[in-house]
Nucleic acid binder design. Structure first.
Lengths: 152, 152
DNA sequence: CTCATAGTGGACACCGTATGTCCACTAACT
DNA sequence: AGTTAGTGGACATACGGTGTCCACTATGAG
């Protein structure tokens, strides 16, 4: 099970946008800042926009901004925007295939799917409990100041 | 982020082996029972053996068994055996690339990686807290009886 | 009003990994 | 001895994540 690297990029970008506090950053600026492929990073940022996490300003002096305050954007919001909301564990209901499907009446969700989903919920809850602003608080003030300076 | 389907197969097989209580099942039996590709299922079972979750008996009347009691095998054990122990979130340290890398001294792990890993730990803990025997308890007795009958 | 800038939407190519197959070999039971 | 079943590894395939590109639209600057 592997999380796409777009998530890491998106989180870093959200942190930067949080620090920039409403002033738009272009995808090109962010791509150069993090040394990431510009076209792909832009695609990731658009996913954030599509999901209401970020907002886009078009035209000259445009760019991307957070759609709301960093305190009200959780890591879960960012992960969901970039990776989608599909659960990691997909129950293919193999109980229903082959001979095992003829064993008897199925009583709702199988125990395995239930157990896996339960674990996944704790994961999502842990992500939802942490905000972009929290991340910012855990970062040294020097990095913050220099990031802002580098992107202004 | 998506969990491989081998995990679901492995969990179902572990449940069956738990019920069979030491009596070996062949990969062919399990494959037919669940209508899964025999060669691939066997590969998955071998991953369980390699990780000490299951044991293999060779020769006639051989097959696979759980290596220990179902109560002492957690979902995490099975997931780790099949999917590996790599964390889902890989920190590529994009802070260190491009211009952002020149911003200042890096003080240990970046906040993002730390936050993601923290969430993942809760996930793993939730998986470790549930055993194969727990799953068995949450399944109707009829299914259990008929599964045993079908594979004997 | 015109031009340059920047995001939009979608199609497309590439590539690594999960998925799935196969075979010669070994071990064990009858 | 012969049959069964797991072993180890190489191999083939399909799919999704990664990454690129382009024509288009919207916006601000001069």
């Amino acid at each position: 099970m592997r999380m796409g690297k777009g998530v890491e990029a998106a989180l870093h970008c959200c942190l930067v946008m949080h620090w920039l506090d409403g002033r738009p950053v272009t995808s090109a600026q962010l791509a150069e800042f993090f040394d990431l492929p510009p076209a792909y990073l832009q695609k990731t940022l658009r996913a954030l926009v599509a999901d209401g996490v970020a907002e886009a300003v078009r035209g000259q002096s445009g760019g991307f901004t957070l759609a709301r305050s960093g305190a009200s954007i959780s890591l879960m919001d960012v992960v969901a925007a970039v990776e989608g909301r599909e659960p990691a564990f997909h129950c293919e209901e193999i109980r229903l295939a082959g001979r095992s499907g003829t064993l008897g009446p199925r009583s709702g969700q199988c125990a395995i799917a239930h157990a896996m989903n339960r674990a996944e919920l704790t994961y999502r809850a842990a992500l939802a409990a942490q905000s972009i602003a929290d991340l910012a608080d855990q970062t040294g003030p020097g990095v913050r100041a220099r990031t802002i300076a580098a992107l202004t």
